[in-house]
Design a protein around this nucleic acid. Structure first.
Lengths: 280, 280
DNA sequence: CTTCTCTTTTCCATCATGTGGAATTATATC
DNA sequence: GATATAATTCCACATGATGGAAAAGAGAAG
């Protein structure tokens, strides 16, 4: 039960969510660290020290993960990176709720109409994740998130729109938990909390270069009748391109599309009677 | 009679790759099964029987996965589905190799020029995965794969283009391994093998409605100077829109873009030491 | 409301399973 | 070629994952 580590300064002060299954926790931390590695990938020894695990353990984990395609290994450099199989898994995850499929036509229409890049954003615990993205003609790649992009709830307009629609108690919990991260983005809990009221009243978030210089965003939460709000659609504009004249038109368009999506979700969760009778 | 306890066929059906870590294997199988579940998600008991595991084990696994955001749970229906966190992880996986970032501008240009939907496809073990996708004006959603789409190597034009560029020995191994799956797609090992020669000669794959009725595809492998070929770009056309007059133009355009990508990859960080010590 | 059935969750004794140190082999650096 | 560093294999050990049993919930039917 004791860990007589000689060189490890701290056992694990980080304590990223620890569940009842040790291996799993380690695998998750391992993959997350791999995700942070740059293009070159990461080498075993570095991962081992970074995670505070023995090289043999990391080696075993990596080998197992590689067998499942969750980790790819460049033979030449002997470096590891996240495996392509994860991409396939995530594709299913994105389709799983049906939300992406449901929203894609709307994203397409909005992107086509506004000529701007449009996003579908979904809550993921304390974060917001870009689930789908539709390019407009004006590409502002470097400033915006790609599919799979992750931001703390409260950072980014779509993220704010989602946060604003959570129950009050949960909002506070989220704010508290994310507080340390806000600093990284140059904002504070107070500032974030301050934005929420307006969003709730108006039903949308309008950012005029407030998060990123020169980038304006219109974001609107998707509020399915019965269920929780966990998604939003956001349109990114180069600030100079979002003229007041257009703004109202885009808001109307967005509102319209969102309502149509919500209508599509109002069908009650399909009740599945277990009629499966394959094996006996 | 309800409990299929009578047989307990095999503790390990061994159908899927089994690594040295039992929990991991189970988690992978669990997630994959969740991925196959429809929009409604899957319930614990069904997962348990489907995987041949005890309910308590599955419960523990699900709880742990949920803590990490890898599984989402709809409280109302008590059903489980793949978690949104996986989407974020996959985003990093897709960016990890730098390939997606490198290719996106090309995808954008091609999609803009041809007005058709364009794909970046990457090898993932025995499969090919859609890593990125750019919509054109003509949306043919239902026929084509979304991001994360998975097909066996050999099925689909991009997939074929990648397969054609693998070393001969590996091609045969892949064909043999995928043979059972080809049948599901209405083709055979021989047919697939037959297509490869032409691709190698021409340097691209042109499908005129051969895989899917009415859908034509031009696909070209990305062949980085030193490394293995693991990616391809594909353009999907409604067959009637791919006129012979345009075909050559699109091929030229594609070739040009691919070459530019290859040029961008030609600066690998590490030099490749030539220590042949393979299997003998 | 009561009863019955099916599903999910908790508990716990058991031992299979994953663990890390040490030894070995491969690879990079000088 | 020599040295240093990283990757891999081996192994005895006890930690941590396991499944059965039983409790707690959730519906459905009477």
């Amino acid at each position: 039960m004791d860990h007589p580590e000689t060189l490890t300064p701290e056992p694990q002060p980080d304590a990223t969510a620890t569940s009842s299954i040790q291996v799993l926790d380690r695998v998750v931390r391992l993959l997350e660290r791999l995700g942070e590695a740059g293009d070159g990938g990461e080498q075993l020894s570095r991962l081992a020290t970074g995670l505070g695990l023995s090289a043999s353990t990391v080696h075993r984990l990596l080998a197992a993960l590689e067998q499942h395609g969750w980790v790819d290994r460049e033979e030449a450099t002997r470096r590891h990176r996240l495996g392509t199989r994860l991409i396939a898994l995530a594709g299913r995850a994105a389709d799983g709720s049906g939300l992406r499929r449901l929203c894609r036509p709307a994203l397409l229409r909005i992107a086509a109409e506004t000529q701007e890049t449009t996003f579908l954003i979904v809550r993921s615990g304390l974060n917001a994740v870009v689930v789908d993205r539709q390019e407009g003609s004006y590409v502002i790649e470097s400033l915006t998130q790609g599919t799979g992009g992750l931001l703390p709830l409260g950072i980014g307009s779509g993220s704010l729109a989602i946060l604003a629609c959570q129950p009050a108690a949960e909002v506070e919990a989220i704010l508290a938990a994310n507080a340390p991260r806000y600093r990284e983005y140059g904002t504070t809990v107070e500032a974030v909390r301050g934005s929420l009221g307006g969003i709730r009243e108006q039903g949308y978030m309008l950012a005029n270069g407030s998060l990123i210089q020169g980038l304006s965003v219109i974001a609107m939460p998707i509020r399915p009748p019965g269920r929780d709000v966990t998604a939003a659609i956001a349109i990114n504009f180069i600030t100079t391109r979002l003229e007041p004249a257009n703004r109202q038109a885009w808001l109307t368009l967005l509102k319209q599309e969102v309502q149509s999506i919500e209508a599509g979700m109002s069908l009650p969760p399909r009740r599945t009677r277990h009629s499966r009778n394959g094996e006996t």
